[in-house]
Amino acid sequence: MELEKFKELHARFFGKELPEAVTASEEYDAYIEAIHDDEACYNWATAEKLKAKGFDFESYCCLMLADKVYQSLDEEGEIKYDDPDVIINKWDEGLYGIPIHDGGASMVVINYCPWCGHKLSK
């Protein structure tokens, strides 16, 4: 999908309660497919979401890592230790890790980004 067309659809669909007639449309399906299958559309939509939330995504090696770290934080910016949907955390010390969901704060420290392979530094 052309990025400009995606941006137009994003403005119409994102963050809104949509009736079933809309979510069952071919246009909506194409929009959802573009988010999942088109890197330019995914990157643009993710950057827009993180900008709107005031999250400093540009300090991360890739948008996927930035988005997953953002998703690991609660509304106060603290790590959500008890959320099984969290797949990566970044600690204040600059360490990144994959949480072990055992009820505590255990993690497996990682040194490379799981998405782009960039060496993660403190």
Results as ranks from 00 to 15, higher is better:
M1W: 06
D29R: 10
A34P: 06
C62S: 01
P99T: 04
C61A: 00
L65E: 10
Y31F: 15
K80Y: 03
E17G: 14
D83C: 06
C61H: 02
F57K: 02
G94Y: 06
K51G: 12
G15I: 04
I110Q: 08
K68H: 12
I88Q: 00
D29I: 10
A47W: 03
D38N: 14
Y42L: 08
A105E: 15
F14K: 15
M107N: 08
K53G: 00
E2W: 09
E76T: 12
I98L: 10
G54Q: 01
F13R: 12
N111P: 00
T46R: 05
I35M: 04
K49A: 15
K122H: 11
K119V: 13
Y81H: 13
K5D: 14
D74E: 11
I88T: 06
V109T: 03
S59D: 06
E2A: 11
V22P: 02
L95K: 09
V22F: 13
A34I: 05
L120Q: 04
T23W: 03
Y60I: 01
V108P: 04
P114T: 12
K119Q: 09
D37V: 04
E76P: 02
E26Y: 00
C116R: 00
S121W: 05
T46A: 01
G94W: 07
A30F: 05
Y31V: 08
T46V: 05
R12Q: 15
P19V: 00
A34E: 10
H10P: 01
E93C: 11
K90R: 14
S106G: 09
M1V: 13
Y60F: 10
P19T: 03
A45E: 14
L65F: 01
G104L: 08
Y81K: 05
E93M: 08
E33M: 09
